[in-house]
């Protein structure tokens, strides 16, 4: 689906965010999430997670993520993006944050498909569209154990798309973060 040029671009976006965040990192980990534009679209988002403590009790969250989501028979979307979040309320074990994100993506729009008597779908006809999506989320995160966090975030994304009208989408993400390095909360 992706050409080499796009793969290189994706790699560089990832690298840039990693390098930027590296110096201040307090926590690092990996994220896996259910991700979709509610209510139908289902998808998967995976990526790296970093948390840098700039001021006491205020966490700066950085995430760089790859994702896929699809509305069966309508489109398949592959994207890469970065997110930066500020914790607005935090206590030991859980926190709420506001997150800003930007995704660049490829949307393979299904123009048409065939259905058989058995209901089986075939012959999908695709058209490629590219988009930039700017999104804002409200997120709630809870520490399950020393190395596992779960989180849920609900957001609004505005999509600037080629070949179709720009539009707003409601986004839902339910994920789990596996921490490689955990911030020491008892310091605060």
């Amino acid at each position: 689906m992706f050409t080499s040029a796009k793969r290189i671009l994706v790699f560089f976006v990832f690298l840039t965010i990693c390098v930027y965040a590296k110096s201040q990192v307090e926590e690092t980990g990996w994220n896996v999430a259910y991700y979709g534009a509610v209510p139908y679209e289902v998808g998967l988002k995976v990526g790296g997670y970093m948390n840098s403590n700039v001021k006491a009790k205020i966490d700066d969250i950085y995430r760089v993520q790859f994702g896929y989501h699809s509305l069966p028979r309508d489109h398949r979307t592959l994207f890469v993006g970065g997110e930066k979040g500020k914790t607005i309320r935090g206590a030991k074990g859980n926190s709420s944050s506001i997150i800003f994100g930007a995704n660049l993506g490829l949307q393979k729009e299904v123009l048409g498909f065939s259905v058989g008597v058995d209901g089986r779908i075939s012959n999908r006809v695709y058209d490629n569209r590219y988009f930039l999506m700017l999104a804002t989320y409200y997120a709630y995160r809870r520490h399950l154990s020393k190395t596992i966090d779960i989180y849920g975030q609900l957001g609004y994304g505005h999509k600037f798309v080629t070949k179709e009208a720009n539009k707003g989408v409601l986004l839902l993400e339910l994920g789990i973060t596996k921490l490689i390095k955990r911030k020491n909360y008892s310091d605060e």
Partner: peptide, 15 residues
Amino acid sequence: SVDAKIDLLSYQPES
């Protein structure tokens, strides 16, 4: 026994 392939489109208006 009917070998149907009926072409459809997903109708989710874009604007």
